[in-house]
């Protein structure tokens, strides 16, 4: 599904990712944890095709395609989805028509017929229940005037409607209270399948109480310094990151 090999990325000449390796297979959930400034969000942005990141070496392939050469919209049409840490407010663009447009672009790419307004509405209403979102938010401009929790639910709603094969959740738990966290995680869990994969980027373990990962990786200073199963996340919760960082340094 996703294969990242020795990925080195810099921002304004400053190296951020320094040789990152990651293999994600269909149906797997990978959690990427790490302290602030370790390169978690950079990874999410590079994978989704945001400008401003210089790939110095290494490769990233998705479904066998060279991910790094694809425009962001092509990545999306091929089934990738990034849930933003800070979803963008877009005044004047209606939430529903935006999402309908996005879905139909993806369907067109797959050679499927575009959904008309009626079919789309019945789809979106079904998926809204998944994230317990208020219907009035559909009529508003994208994310405008949404609370922090509503924005994150809107991300998960988009994910549910677009039905990606690989979803990257960039600190989706940040700024969420426990109820919102449960709803968002519930949405993710309902979308889990043997075909879909998730990369869950998070600073805290608590999201992983709700979205149980198959693998946990610790990112520090641009590299994955430890990989394990969900028990690793619990250990991090108990002991913090410092012991791991020290362990990594002593190896160097």
């Amino acid at each position: 599904m996703l294969s990242i090999k020795n990925l080195q990325v810099s921002v304004e000449e400053k190296p951020i990712l320094k040789g990152l390796n990651l293999e994600v297979k269909p149906g797997e959930i990978h959690a990427i944890m790490g302290p602030n400034g370790s390169g978690k969000s950079t990874l999410a942005h590079v994978l989704s095709g945001r400008e401003g990141y210089q790939v110095d070496s290494g490769s990233a392939s998705y479904k066998g395609l060279n991910l790094l050469e694809m425009a962001p919209e092509i990545r999306a049409r091929e089934g990738m989805f990034l849930a933003f840490q800070y979803p963008i407010e877009i005044p004047g663009v209606n939430n529903t028509s935006f999402l309908k447009k996005a879905l139909n672009e993806i369907r067109k790419h797959r050679g499927e017929e575009e959904l008309d307004a009626i079919d789309f509405l019945s789809l979106i209403k079904k998926q809204m229940k998944l994230v317990e979102m208020k219907e009035e938010l559909l009529k508003r401009p994208v994310n405008q005037g949404f609370s922090g929790g509503e924005k994150k639910r809107n991300e998960i709603l988009q994910m549910a409607v677009l039905n990606p094969t690989l979803a990257i959740l960039d600190e989706t738990d940040s700024g969420l209270d426990i109820d919102a966290l449960r709803i968002v995680a519930g949405g993710v869990n309902k979308l889990r399948s043997s075909d879909n994969s998730f990369v869950v980027i998070t600073h805290y373990q608590r999201l992983l109480d709700y979205i149980v990962p198959d693998f946990v990786h610790v990112l520090s200073n641009g590299q994955i310094i430890k990989s394990g199963t969900k028990e690793l996340a619990l250990e991090l919760e108990e002991r913090g990151y410092d012991w791991l960082l020290e362990e990594a340094e002593s190896k160097v």
Binding site: S48, G49, R50, E51, A71, P72, E73, R75, A76, R77, F81, L82, F84, P87, I88, I90, V93, F98, L99, K101, A102, L103, E105, I106, H109, V142, Q158, L162
Partner: peptide, 13 residues
Amino acid sequence: DALFYLQSRGIDK
């Protein structure tokens, strides 16, 4: 940021 957000959902530039 808004442009990228739309692109990341499959809408071309």
